[in-house]
Design a protein around this nucleic acid. Structure first.
Length: 298
DNA sequence: GCGTCCAGGTCTACC
DNA sequence: GGTAGACCTGGACGC
């Protein structure tokens, strides 16, 4: 049985540019059908009792959401729609960023294509765990670690798909489990500690979405978590809507050298000054600039 | 087949 | 505060 829901597409929104904004679409429980441009995700309700896979795609004026599996309750339906809004960042206002991008010849395409919304998970906790999985390893290993988390700790839906594990579920296994089963290596004790702290309420990553802390204070708080350094914190900041950090990693640096420095290595401060004109939006400007070519293939 | 390098870094000890 | 070295994994590459 399938049920279909609809959400209105906001102005200045591009489904493809949002889904393809970074590698998250490639990490479970996301799944992208690139041929038909349909994004799937496995949702769970507030109490992690009801679970279902849903597929989102765009029509002319709307986003269509098809939910498979058992009939969902009205409360769960509302949560799925709320999560879709969150994931696709339908309520983000990028008009100020587009105003800065438009006059720049190299950046005008961003506003022209409604790019800049970065796909994210329904919870900050999930984005936090996934971000730690991206550190100091290849993308292939990141995918493997995330897949292991979902397959070995997630809850199964009627259709056989798994959710991303809850903090409680992750707190129930040991560091040795993360090392042996998730193949997390030195990150193993970090995951065990993080899950315990979130499950017990000692830290609340979801509060980062609405905190009154300044960006530098929030970054400091994020870096208190083992496994979260400068890059990881700045990446997370982008996912909670703060773009003043560049989140430079080896891939971004290499792309910048190629595009703007004639293949020569330059200092991070040179990269920073290149995007200074974008003020608090500089991290997003850098990311869009470095990923522009991705969209040639879509 | 084997050894080495390195990839979407971070932590800790030491200065 | 700045820096060197250790830390897991697994794919790519050279031999």
């Amino acid at each position: 049985m399938k049920q279909t829901y609809f959400l209105e597409k906001p102005a200045n929104f591009s489904f493809k540019y949002t889904v393809f904004s970074h590698g998250w679409y490639d990490l479970q429980p996301f799944e992208l059908d690139k041929e038909n441009w349909r994004l799937s995700y496995v949702f769970s309700d507030e109490n992690n009792i009801e679970r279902t896979a849903a597929t989102v795609w765009e029509t002319e004026n709307t986003l269509r959401i098809e939910v498979s599996g058992n009939r969902v309750t009205e409360t769960f339906k509302k949560k799925i729609l709320r999560d879709v809004r969150h994931i696709l960042r339908l309520d983000d206002d990028l008009s100020e960023f587009y105003k800065l991008a438009k006059p720049n010849k190299e950046f005008a395409w961003i506003a022209g294509n409604n790019a800049g919304r970065l796909l994210r998970s329904p919870t900050v906790f999930e984005d936090l765990v996934k971000t730690v999985c991206t550190t100091n390893c290849s993308w292939a290993l990141t995918k493997k670690m995330v897949a292991n988390l979902v397959e070995k700790l997630g809850e199964k839906t009627v259709g056989g798909k798994n959710t991303f594990p809850t903090p409680e579920k992750m707190a129930n296994v040991t560091a040795e489990f993360y090392r042996a089963e998730i193949r997390a290596g030195y990150r193993a004790p970090y995951f065990a500690e993080l899950a315990e702290k979130v499950a017990s309420g000692k830290i609340n990553p979801e509060s980062w979405l609405q905190t009154n802390l300044s960006t530098s204070e929030l970054k400091r708080e994020m870096k208190q978590i083992k496994g979260v350094g400068n890059y990881a914190a700045e990446n997370l900041l982008k996912l909670v809507g703060r773009y003043d950090g560049l989140a430079l990693d080896s891939w971004l640096r290499a792309q910048f050298y190629k595009k703007h420095a004639g293949e020569k290595v330059c200092a991070d401060k040179d990269i920073e000054s290149f995007y200074e004109r974008f003020g608090d939006w500089r991290g997003l400007a850098l990311w869009c600039d470095m990923t522009e070519k991705w969209f040639d293939k879509t």
